[in-house]
Design a protein around this nucleic acid. Structure first.
Lengths: 218, 218
DNA sequence: TATTATTTTTAGACTTGACTAAAAATTTAT
DNA sequence: ATAAATTTTTAGTCAAGTCTAAAAATAATA
């Protein structure tokens, strides 16, 4: 149906569309896929012929319903495999991405359905990102960046924005993992750093960290 | 390291070498991979440059030690995934091949080591074929084609030669699965068909079937 | 608005892996 | 041993996906 490359382009556009409702620019796609704008133009033409994107020259692209569904299915596979790697094969949350990038392209509906069942129909991946259902729908959850909480507010850590292995390993070192309760003790005005309480432990974290951690307010 | 195509060629040569110690002919590889002889020649040159095969024009190819190890590793992955599909995802033995053909190309040593552990370090795949160890070695087992047993002899069904889904589904229908005890009751001279006893049930099977079933003599 | 600057597209080239058709080597048969 | 048949290789072509460099369109600025 779709080649590996086509799937990667659809996924990139899918992710970019989550941040805006405008047309997705050639350059944005090129940057996300670490490729050149000219290559993107070529591929976009092909995707347009396959009816998965709407394309008007110089105006960027948007996914059609078919495109959205196709992309969401790739994302679904990616995230289910990530859960598998962590839950069944003892991977840590910073090791799963590259392997899942390969596994997400395996074509077998039965494989994914059975994997879903084996894992107990998980709703979120190891980084807190929601797993699309079979039809490509994902229910948005109410989460806020830690940096938006006020002093004295608290909540549960439910996800990360940046899921690079560097950031995830940093969080591990600090003892910050999904599910833990975090309370804002103090906010410093001059550098926006935070003093937080996490599971009875006091910690000072920079604004950069607070801007990449999602909290469900308690 | 190696592309998907290169891995498939190495695997094909690996399997063909199990049946002979002569050089593997261009045509044999072409047939196994359902491609053309000219394509095979092209690829062989590339594999030769990569030091995984020894190639002399018009004389066929053979794997080097590196080639053997590389191919065995692909076979190892294929068979481990097959076990996973059957043991963990409720696939039947006739459904696993095509999916394993995709999964065998996933690159992640940790993934395979952990999968191996999850499965309890299996030694054989769902069709009775041995799983190479990490170094690419596989211990040959003593097995005989059912057709070579004499009247009154018996043994345990340990594998199939033809693992097409048609044959496997046929065996399922007849109640023939790995691990079952089979005894030769009678052999018909004029068509080489057999009358066998399998788990207290009498069955008549053709020579074609008997030529594709492996037995460990009891 | 005219002129830069940026973004996007086109044109042409390259790599991988495959193909067809024809030439060369090897094997089989007379 | 020579001719015929088969196998293998070469030569040239093609599609997918990428790239560079240049042209065209759009956006930003004076």
């Amino acid at each position: 149906m779709f080649t590996l490359s086509e799937e990667n382009y659809l996924k990139a556009i899918y992710h970019l569309e989550l941040d805006t409702d405008k047309g997705i620019s050639t350059n944005a796609i090129a940057e996300k896929l670490a490729t050149k704008a000219s290559s993107v133009t070529d591929m976009i033409k092909k995707l347009s012929e396959k009816k998965v994107v709407i394309y008007k020259k110089y105006k960027g692209v948007n996914l059609t319903e078919l495109g959205k569904k196709t992309a969401a299915n790739v994302v679904r596979k990616h995230r289910l495999w990530e859960v598998f790697l962590v839950e069944k094969l003892n991977f840590s949350w910073d090791e799963v991405h590259d392997v899942a990038e390969q596994l997400e392209h395996i074509k077998s509906p039965k494989l994914i359905n059975q994997l879903d069942a084996l894992l107990g129909f998980p709703t979120h991946d190891p980084h807190g990102d929601p797993i699309p259902d079979k039809d490509g729908n994902l229910k948005p959850i109410e989460k806020s960046l830690l940096s938006t909480l006020a002093k004295k507010e608290s909540g549960i850590c439910v996800g990360v924005d940046d899921s690079s292995s560097e950031f995830l390993q940093f969080l591990d070192k600090k003892g910050i993992t999904l599910g833990k309760k975090i309370t804002i003790l103090d906010k410093e005005d001059f550098d926006d750093s935070l003093s937080i309480l996490i599971e009875d432990k006091k910690l000072s974290i920079s604004n950069k960290i607070a801007n990449n951690l999602y909290i469900r307010k308690a």
